[in-house]
Design a protein around this nucleic acid. Structure first.
Lengths: 154, 154
DNA sequence: CTTGACTCTGTAGCGACTACAGGGTTTCTA
DNA sequence: TAGAAACCCTGTAGTCGCTACAGAGTCAAG
C-alpha cells in the first residue's frame, strides 16, 4: 500500500508518517519505480503501535525504546515497567497541577461577572495585584495551591 | 536594577526576560552607558503580571491582550471574561483527557508486575495488540474513554 | 488532454522557552 | 593591583511533535 492508504488506515497524517520515518520510528519502506513509498503489514502494525503509545502521551523517545524491546523479545522487561511508571508519575503530577489551575481560574473568574470599564474589572485587578506582590483570589489558598504546584506549571 | 536582579526578584530566568522583551511583552528598558539594561518598578510589576498569567497557563498571546487592557483602563472588560472563560474551558478539556489517560496507563501497568522476558511482558503485549486492532486493557472501557478523548490527546 | 488527486523532497513555522557561542564589563578576592 | 568569577551583551540554534507550505513529479478518470 502507498503512504496515503497507510495514513488513512491508521488515522495518521501523511506528513506525520514521513516524519516518523525520518526519526527512524518506521523502517524505510520499499519504493516503487517512481519513488513512491510502499508499505506492508509490518509497517501498519508498527505505526499503530506508535500511535497507541502516543495516545498514552508517551514521548517519541520512549516509543523508540519500546520498539527496541519489541525487536528483542528475549530481553528483560523490567525497564518497560520503569518507563511506564515514569509516564504515570508525569501524568499524575500534571493532573495535580491542572486541578489546582482549574480552581485558580474559576476563583479568578468569579471576580468579574458583568461588563465594567476595564479599570473596575475584578479579574484585571486580581492579576495586577499579583504584580504588587499582594494576595489575590486565584493564588490565595495555600492549602490548595503550593508554590511547588505553581512552579510545576511553569 | 539590572536584568539579573529583576530576574531573581520575579523568579524568571534572565534569558526569559530578554525573550519577553523581544516579544514586546516588556517595554524596552533604559540602557546604562555600557549597554546593560536598567529596569524600574513598572517593569517589575509588568513582569510579575506576565508570570502570574503564565502560572494560570495562559498563552503569551492572551497575556499580550490582557496587557493592552491594562494600558487602556477605560475600555470595556467583556473581552477579558471571554478570554478567561476560554482558558477555563481549555483547562477543563485537558483535565478530562488527562484523567482518562491516567486510567489507561494504570490499567496498562497492571498487565505486568514482576520482570519477565520481554516476549511475555503483559504491557508490551497490550501495546502490540493495539497494532493488530484487538481490544486492549488500557483502551478497553468505552464508558471512560471516548474516541474524542483520545483524539484530544493527539 | 486536462483536471484533480496523489506523491516526492526540503524547509520553515508553531509555543515558550532553553542553551549555547563568543564576546565585553564589573566585582570580588588574594 | 592582578586575576578570577560573576555578570552582561547579541545572535543563533535546539527542544517536542507535529503541521504547513513550496515547488516539483506522477497517475487515473472524464
Amino acid at each position: 500500500m502507498r503512504i496515503g492508504e497507510l495514513a488513512e488506515r491508521t488515522g495518521v497524517d501523511v506528513e506525520t508518517v514521513r516524519y516518523y520515518e525520518k526519526l527512524l520510528l518506521l523502517p524505510p519502506p520499499a519504493r516503487e519505480a517512481n519513488g513512491y513509498r510502499t508499505y506492508g503489514k509490518t509497517h501498519l502494525e508498527r505505526l499503530a503501535f506508535v500511535r497507541h503509545c502516543r495516545a498514552l502521551d508517551m514521548p517519541l523517545a520512549d516509543v523508540t525504546r519500546l520498539l527496541n524491546f519489541v525487536d528483542q523479545p528475549a530481553s528483560d522487561c523490567a525497564d518497560i515497567n520503569v518507563l511506564v511508571d515514569a509516564q504515570i508519575s508525569r501524568v499524575k503530577a500534571r493532573l495535580k497541577s491542572m486541578r489546582a489551575l482549574e480552581k485558580q481560574l474559576t476563583a479568578l473568574r468569579r471576580q468579574c461577572s458583568s461588563p465594567h470599564p476595564t479599570q473596575d474589572c475584578g479579574i484585571l485587578h486580581e492579576l495586577v495585584s499579583a504584580a504588587h506582590g499582594e494576595a489575590c483570589a486565584c493564588h490565595a489558598g495555600h492549602s490548595t495551591i503550593s508554590p511547588d504546584t505553581v512552579a510545576e506549571l511553569l
